[in-house]
Design a protein around this nucleic acid. Structure first.
Lengths: 151, 151
DNA sequence: ATAGTAGTTGCGAATAATTCTCAATTAAAG
DNA sequence: CTTTAATTGAGAATTATTCGCAACTACTAT
């Protein structure tokens, strides 16, 4: 699982984050750099609450706005798992992937297996309203091995 | 697209909804019957707000609780599309399906094309934390033909 | 370097969404 | 018909999200 922090040393970190934002057409401001720097360190997607708590220096509104713009520019991915948990992760430096979520404890694991290439064509050929697809959301649920034992 | 209302006449409707709830191990109370009766008529998944507005007679808390219990018992499916849109639809009387959502206007279409059967096995064979999957969530996004024209 | 400018921030208030509490009610079983 | 455990409604409490606007700042062009 490649991470941005693996590719740049600590001292250059700030600079590299700025470049990353620029490369996505996003102005490099303090809260944006902080959010991205934080997300880079994460293995799993995080909620807004998590990010907000970890970065009390910046206003909640800015965290929301930062995530919005980064999603818009394709630097961040939103994972919708349930009503009250929208989670966020960096797309940069990672292969396209999906998640397996434990229905019991909420623990997550990445899965790099994706849809077969031809499935979108098949779907479009049966669709009345759509002639092209831009992306998809695919998440798997199950009870993880740890929770399975405790039953 | 089969609907419960196709299978029972108007007069028997109340009774059939009661049976439907019972069959899922859910006590048949007034708000639950109302919610299910309403969902039966819908072609697309609805938000809590929609349901709540349509059924002012029942308390918001009951709508939430009804949906929670019905999801738990497998009678209702929650579709997570974005942060502020959790949508709900009946599972009963419908084939397992997914949705295509227009990123512009939010209009939706069902798609009965699902994942290939072997994909879950493949995923599990690569997974460290999971040995079984219970279900999945798969949604497609694109710009619908109507919106495509307006650009 | 410096100044201009458009875009961004922080704050707190406004709004919306969700959960909670608990007394009163009711579905289902006996 | 009675009993009982589960459910409801109402509103308060909590949490999540958005908004408005004056102050600030990253980037651009001098």
């Amino acid at each position: 699982m490649p991470r941005l922090s693996d590719q740049y040393n600590e001292d250059e970190n700030r600079n590299s984050t700025q470049d990353l934002l620029w490369a996505h057409g996003i102005k490099a401001t303090a809260p944006r750099i902080a959010v991205i720097d934080f997300l880079v360190q994460q293995d799993n997607p995080l909620s807004i609450g998590d990010i907000n708590k970890k970065l009390p220096k910046y206003s909640t509104a800015s965290i929301y706005r930062t995530l919005d713009v980064c999603i818009d520019k394709g630097l961040v991915n939103r994972v919708n798992i349930d009503r009250s948990r929208a989670l966020f992760e960096l797309t940069f430096g990672r292969k396209h992937h999906h998640h397996i979520i434990c229905t019991d404890c909420g623990d997550m694991e990445d899965s790099e297996k994706c849809l077969p290439q031809d499935i979108e064509k098949t779907i479009l050929s049966h669709s009345k309203k759509f002639s092209a697809l831009s992306h998809h959301s695919l998440e798997f649920f199950g009870c993880c091995k740890k929770c399975d034992v405790h039953e």
